[in-house]
Design a binder for these strands. Structure first.
Length: 262
DNA sequence: ATGCCCGAGTCGCTCGGA
């Protein structure tokens, strides 16, 4: 069986990024894709272009903000859930889950949480608690599961170019990091960090201060593997060329390869 | 302490993002 390539990409507006999405699908040919920040109502999702590119899709959109989708090459993802159980705010489209190509994929757009402290940070932590609870059930199910998305958490200071101007940011507060660590402590494998423990890896470079040009990035897009998938991990990377396109998203697609015969 | 650069929405500005 060939390798299974699973990617996550915060696209930051699917309608303004449709050409880049199609170019990326054509060049990198991922088998499963998690998209976040569609910033599009359901009826404006470009399903026809995605179908024409050879992908089936499910999506959970919202006007202006948020929005998540799962794409599968040559297949229709079988939706298993939209929204978290007891989601604290169902008006925010931040979670969708499906079975595709033999794995269950949870697509996550975790709240940013800025400014902190404040109600947005409280919401981030509350949402995180619901995710942790749901993830425990997925892990315990024994199914092959990938939890992929924009976690809006910088796990350690090694995952940021420099903490100086980010000390007060919600993405690296101890509370945010503790939640992420509690998720890992359930047994999940942080795929990119596990495969490259010594490498500086970034998945996001903000639009300010020429951060892309100076490679001043953050690692906040993560793919977490359940116990039986961890030994199948054979590759991972960040498609940095997509971040360099004209009118690029501030995130780059982040991917793993699984060899499921193991 | 704040803006920087963006997309989306209602329109020449605000808001949210990270």
């Amino acid at each position: 069986m060939p390798k299974l390539k699973i990617a996550t990409f915060n696209i930051n507006g699917i309608r303004s990024r449709e050409a880049a999405l199609l170019e990326w699908l054509e060049k990198e040919s991922p088998d499963v894709v998690c998209l976040q920040e569609l910033k599009s109502p359901d009826e404006a999702f470009p399903i026809e272009a995605i179908n024409n590119a050879g992908y089936g899709a499910i999506w959970h959109g919202q006007k202006s903000w948020n929005g998540v989708a799962i794409l599968a090459k040559g297949a229709d993802p079988l939706e298993t859930r939209r929204g978290l159980p007891d989601d604290p705010d169902l008006t925010q489209s931040r979670y969708i889950e499906a079975a595709a190509h033999g794995v269950i994929v949870g697509c996550i757009y975790l709240p940013n949480g800025n400014p902190q402290p404040g109600p947005k940070f409280d919401y981030k932590l509350e949402w995180f608690e619901h995710l942790i609870r749901h993830a425990q059930g997925l892990f315990d199910s024994g199914h092959p599961v990938v939890l992929a998305g924009d976690y809006n958490v910088i796990p350690t200071d090694f995952d940021i170019y420099n903490t100086r101007s980010w000390k007060k940011d919600a993405l690296l507060q101890p509370e945010s990091r503790e939640c992420y660590q509690r998720l890992l402590d359930q047994g999940w494998t942080d795929a990119l960090r596990t495969l490259y423990p010594e490498e500086r890896i970034y998945t996001f470079w903000d639009y300010f201060r020429q951060h892309w040009q100076t490679n001043s990035g953050l690692r906040i897009d993560h793919l977490l593997l359940s116990a039986d998938l961890a030994p199948a991990l054979v590759g991972a990377g960040v498609d940095r060329w997509v971040r360099d396109l004209p009118k690029a998203s501030d995130h780059a697609p982040t991917w793993i390869e699984l060899d499921l015969k193991h």
